[in-house]
């Protein structure tokens, strides 16, 4: 990937999308890299569409504004595909990672992805239900982003998730999240 990778996350309030962006930034600090993670600030409402952003670079990050031309677009809630244009500004070689049980080819068609763009899907909500027991798709999505972008190794990401979640949650929930990240990594597929 390029010197600077810019990611846009689409989710709904309460799904852990902003947390996912934060964990990714933290995990990407390795190798002296510079990172940013920030949500689009607005009223915080459970269920409302939201965006969050990451920049990850080998160079100092000075840009302090939303990502307008993302290299990676992550859709944590597929119902947003009907109401938000998640392809807006995406680079000609952008990758899309969508949380859905549907086939990546079907999503590719729905997005109207350009020939140079790649579309991946992962059934993150089902994975979350099976591993964490609740519909928090952010951990499997992180695993999928890790696999598709190669920004950070799976082992390092798992270590970082343990560190980030360890402060707040019980061992059972941490273990569930680690399994969720691993399965997201393994089960993401391209269409």
């Amino acid at each position: 990937m390029a010197d600077t990778v810019e990611i846009r996350w689409h989710g709904r309030g309460g799904q852990g999308t902003v947390t996912a962006a934060k964990v990714l930034a933290d995990a990407c600090l390795t190798g002296g890299r510079h990172v940013q993670a920030f949500p689009e600030y607005g009223p915080e409402r459970s269920g409302a569409p939201l965006k969050a952003y990451n920049r990850i670079s080998s160079k100092e990050l000075r840009m302090h504004c939303p990502v307008l031309e993302p290299q990676v677009v992550t859709v944590v809630d597929a119902s947003l595909l009907d109401s938000v244009d998640v392809t807006e500004g995406a680079k000609p070689d952008a990758v899309f990672i969508v949380n859905t049980a549907k086939d990546p080819k079907e999503i590719r068609e729905k997005l109207g992805a350009k020939p140079g763009q790649r579309v991946f899907t992962v059934d993150a909500t089902r994975i979350a239900l099976e591993t964490i027991g609740r519909a928090f798709p952010n951990s499997p999505m992180l695993g999928a982003v890790c696999r598709v972008t190669g920004l950070v190794s799976l082992d390092h990401l798992l270590e970082d998730v343990r560190k980030s979640f360890g402060k707040k949650f019980s061992e059972k929930i941490i273990q569930g999240n680690l399994d969720a990240v691993r399965r997201g990594y393994e089960e993401v597929k391209e269409g």
């Binding site: 934060k22 600090l29 890299r33 510079h34 990172v35 940013q36 993670a37 920030f38 302090h64």
Partner: peptide
């Protein structure tokens, strides 16, 4: 420092 843009954004 700038509210939200810096106060609430994660950076290195």
């Amino acid at each position: 420092m700038d509210g939200f843009i810096i106060s609430h954004s994660i950076g290195r």
